[in-house]
């Protein structure tokens, strides 16, 4: 038995690019069903931290655990590949720029991984694609290519694609930052729906209103450290740290 009981646990995460230390000894836990928001100015290390969770950007120090299993285990190459591919199947990720596969329809984007990795039959996968795309309100666009969809629709397909793998955890890296303002809400609604279903989520965002309405907990990052964390009421209304207050003042002023 190991002492691991938390759902997601990051222990002493450290990441450097050469001399540049991007993450400085970050520790963090997320419980099952919890929704954690990460805010902070550009370059503060939010994406790096998020991408360390599924080892897209491997840490240079520290550990990431998911549901009792260490993600960034030290294994020989082949074993590690097998291990990490299994871990990644359990973690959905949504990117700022959608990264839909442009040569596949919405349906194919959603069905590819379940067919390849979970051995679903074509019929099962089609049913799954219909369900998932219906869930994000895009059933009628199921046979459209990404180039035929708006940004908001693309991002909703990307979410459906991630959810089709039935992940335990969803990571969102500024899912609405690349969208025209009028398309943000449709994506936010999909994320809120996920929140209601108690999906565990870690959400990097620039949208303070959204963070404060869906997150159970918000982390403020600056220069590779978590400066302050707490419930959104405290972080947004009553932050203790000076740096948090400065960030919020600048950010909210800019947003208005």
């Amino acid at each position: 038995m190991n002492e691991q009981t938390k759902f997601v646990e990051i222990r002493h995460a450290q990441k450097s690019y050469g001399d540049l230390e991007v993450l400085k000894d970050i520790s963090l836990t997320v419980d099952r069903g919890q929704i954690v928001g990460i805010i902070g100015s550009s370059g503060s290390g939010k994406s790096t931290l998020l991408r360390a969770i599924n080892d897209l950007d491997p840490l240079t120090g520290g550990e990431v655990w998911l549901d009792g299993v260490q993600v960034n285990k030290n294994l020989p190459y082949r074993k590690y590949e097998k291990h990490i591919n299994e871990m990644r199947q359990q973690v959905g990720m949504v990117f700022q720029h959608f990264n839909l596969f442009p040569h596949m329809t919405a349906r194919e984007n959603v069905t590819m991984a379940p067919i390849m990795l979970k051995g679903l039959s074509k019929a099962e996968a089609n049913k799954l694609a219909e369900e998932q795309l219906d869930e994000v309100g895009l059933l009628e666009r199921i046979d459209y290519y990404p180039s035929q969809l708006s940004g908001g629709q693309k991002q909703r397909v990307a979410i459906a694609r991630a959810l089709a793998m039935k992940p335990k955890l969803m990571l969102f890296d500024e899912a609405t930052s690349a969208l025209d303002p009028e398309l943000v809400e449709e994506v936010n609604l999909v994320m809120k729906k996920l929140a209601e279903k108690h999906m565990t989520m870690i959400i990097v965002t620039h949208e303070m209103d959204f963070a404060s309405s869906v997150c159970d907990r918000v982390l403020f990052m600056d220069q590779g450290v978590v400066v302050e964390e707490g419930p959104p009421e405290v972080i947004f209304k009553n932050p203790k740290q000076k740096r948090t207050r400065e960030f919020l003042r600048k950010h909210l002023a800019g947003a208005k």
Binding site: N54, L56, E81, N85, E86, R88, Q89, V91, G92, M93, F95, H97, N99, L100, F101, P102, H103, M112, A113, M116, L117, A158, R161, A162, M165
Partner: peptide, 27 residues
């Protein structure tokens, strides 16, 4: 091909070769 394509495929759990074969090569 945009590196985001590889990232999206790897994030879903595809291996290097699956990613190459299904996502990168066709594009």
């Amino acid at each position: 091909i945009d590196k985001g394509q590889t990232e999206a495929a790897r994030t879903l759990g595809l291996s290097r070769w699956q990613t190459m074969y299904k996502v990168i090569l066709p594009q």
